[in-house]
Nucleic acid binder design. Structure first.
Lengths: 132, 132
DNA sequence: AATTTAACTTGCATTTTAAAAGTTAAATTT
DNA sequence: AAATTTAACTTTTAAAATGCAAGTTAAATT
């Protein structure tokens, strides 16, 4: 996706403005998924060709990186780059929005509680965990 | 878009997970645009049929509302609902992300500075402005 | 050596998008 | 009052993206 404007919001959407990319980032961030098959087995059931094309774009956009698993060379290990990790605050605000406006969803209550009462601490902890 | 899962992030994407919807919300939120023609004239140049379909979905999702302008009955006035206003923190985090990772963009420096140093105050002020 | 697993790619039908032109009702101009 | 312009769309059609199923390849396991 070419740059559509100078707008910082439009810019983020140029990277992750679709139904799937942020779910990949979510899985890498919150669920410790690192393999292609892990990502494919999420509840939203992304088609394999779409997953493939999104991983390719996220990697070329610098949000994720891909390495061969040294223990099993069939496997690829997908991880977030610093730019990908920095999407975390956006995801947290989405969680907060849904907890307020879609109370019908099954959202871990303690996560929401901490996101609201200790946002900075939560971001700090999750970021530290991802860096390691 | 039907609900894809119980995930709060997926849920937000079900509402605004495309390249355009959040730009409409941005224009209503930051640029005081309220008319169809205003929205169409943004830098990103959304096609008129897409704008129309997105406005329809955002309204049926409860993020915006539409009224006839009493002063000029040709005009419709689009405004954010409380749920739409509550997307603000998500947009702010996007601005912060872009300021950090796409420094080539022309982002109002004072906005970014305040978003970082006085997030709560900024949200408070913008929200108050939108409520009126 | 044969089978299974992981990570994809390919082919094709369906859906969505984009670009351009057309429609309708209300307001403005002549 | 009639003609023109404006605002908000809708329609049409081609191009692109999506979704589903099946197929491929290399590495690991049996």
């Amino acid at each position: 996706m070419p740059k559509r404007s100078e707008c910082p919001i439009s810019n983020v959407l140029d990277h992750v403005g679709d139904k799937w990319s942020l779910l990949i980032i979510r899985d890498l961030m919150f669920f410790n998924k690192h393999a292609y098959s892990d990502l494919q087995s999420s509840d939203e059931r992304m088609a394999t060709n779409i997953l493939s094309s999104r991983l390719e774009k996220l990697e070329s956009d610098g949000l994720i990186s891909k390495q061969v698993d040294p223990k099993d060379k069939r496997k690829k290990v997908y991880t977030l780059t610093p730019a990908g990790i920095d999407m975390l605050p956006i995801l947290i605000e989405m969680i907060i929005w849904s907890s307020k406006h879609s109370p019908d969803l099954n959202i871990p209550e303690e996560l929401v509680a901490r996101a609201i009462s200790d946002r900075a601490g939560l971001i700090q902890d999750l970021t530290a965990n991802l860096a390691s």
